[in-house]
């Protein structure tokens, strides 16, 4: 009950901030809404079956029925891009959601209590930063083997220490503020203070960081798939499409250009939104 309250409170703050956002951030939000709709409604939007092979249309150039052209197997690149989008955004959403949901309690406890609680939580998380991000992801994939779910987990693992750090810093700032002292003075239990005051007020920076990281997650997911370590064929994926298109680059550049542009647009939209939110939800400059 209380958890839903705090979440809605965070959402309400985010929503009230949207009205005051700079134009660029609102543009980013609008692009993301459209892209999310494309991902959800992919079967309705895609004009063709993304996996339907058409020997008559091998490497056919874009036309009205196939706006992005066709690939080496005659599959419709537009339909494949739409479905790949769905795959990528699901993986990214799952990864960022998991990382945020784990980072939220860990960071809050570390920031609120400090001392040995902070040490026990923060030291192991810092160890994850010893490896460069992509290397950490690849290490996990080396252990478990490639796949969409593993890619999502790997991205979550990269983001967990970053998000936990942001939440820790944010909770630290909030827990030193007057109304939290007030809650303590009224004899509330630490958990009650955390639920009612710390979490709702410390949520802003986490949302901002999650929005910025979500954009780069699209890039990482595509990179992993491109290397053959993420989503496996025949599931359409932006990274796999780029990998396939490389072989037919000079004959049919459209196979390569459109999935790449799609990635750039998502990253750009998340960046615009994140930078705009930063000014409203992260006054202390906690987000890196």
């Amino acid at each position: 009950m209380t958890t839903t309250m705090t979440v809605t409170s965070g959402v309400r703050r985010a929503r009230s901030a949207v009205g005051a956002l700079p134009r660029s951030a609102r543009a980013g939000a609008a692009i993301l809404v459209v892209l999310a709709a494309v991902a959800v409604l992919a079967p309705l939007i895609a004009p063709h079956d993304p996996n339907a092979i058409d020997s008559a249309r091998i490497l056919a150039a874009p036309d009205l029925g196939h706006p992005f052209g066709s690939d080496a197997l005659g599959r419709d690149v537009f339909s494949r891009t739409v479905f790949a989008f769905r795959t990528s955004l699901s993986i990214v959403f799952a990864a960022v959601a998991v990382a945020s949901l784990v980072a939220l309690p860990l960071g809050t406890l570390a920031g609120y209590f400090g001392g040995w609680v902070d040490q026990i939580i923060s030291r192991p998380l810092d160890m994850l930063l010893v490896l460069p991000a992509l290397l950490l992801a690849i290490s996990l994939i080396a252990i478990v083997g490639p796949g969409s779910l593993v890619a999502a987990l790997a991205i979550a693992l990269i983001y967990l220490p970053i998000l936990a750090r942001v939440q820790r810093a944010s909770a630290l700032v909030v827990s030193q503020s007057g109304f939290v002292e007030g809650g303590r003075a009224r004899g509330w239990s630490p958990l009650a203070v955390i639920r009612r005051h710390v979490v709702p007020n410390a949520l802003g920076p986490l949302l901002v960081q999650a929005a910025i990281l979500a954009g780069f997650a699209v890039q990482i997911e595509a990179a992993l798939s491109f290397l053959g370590l993420g989503t496996q064929p025949p599931t359409p994926s932006l990274g796999l499409m780029l990998s396939d298109g490389r072989d037919v680059l000079t004959q049919a550049p459209w196979v390569e250009i459109f999935p790449g542009l799609a990635i750039a647009v998502v990253v750009l939209a998340f960046n615009l939104l994140g930078d705009g939110l930063r000014r409203h939800l992260d006054p202390q400059g906690v987000v890196s």
Partner: peptide, 22 residues
């Protein structure tokens, strides 16, 4: 900066290949 941060590096690489090598 916006361009450089948003474009995936490997896609940029492929486009460079298309231009300079292709």
């Amino acid at each position: 900066v916006v361009f450089g941060v948003s474009v995936p590096d490997f896609w940029l690489g492929i486009m460079l290949v298309l231009l300079f090598a292709g």
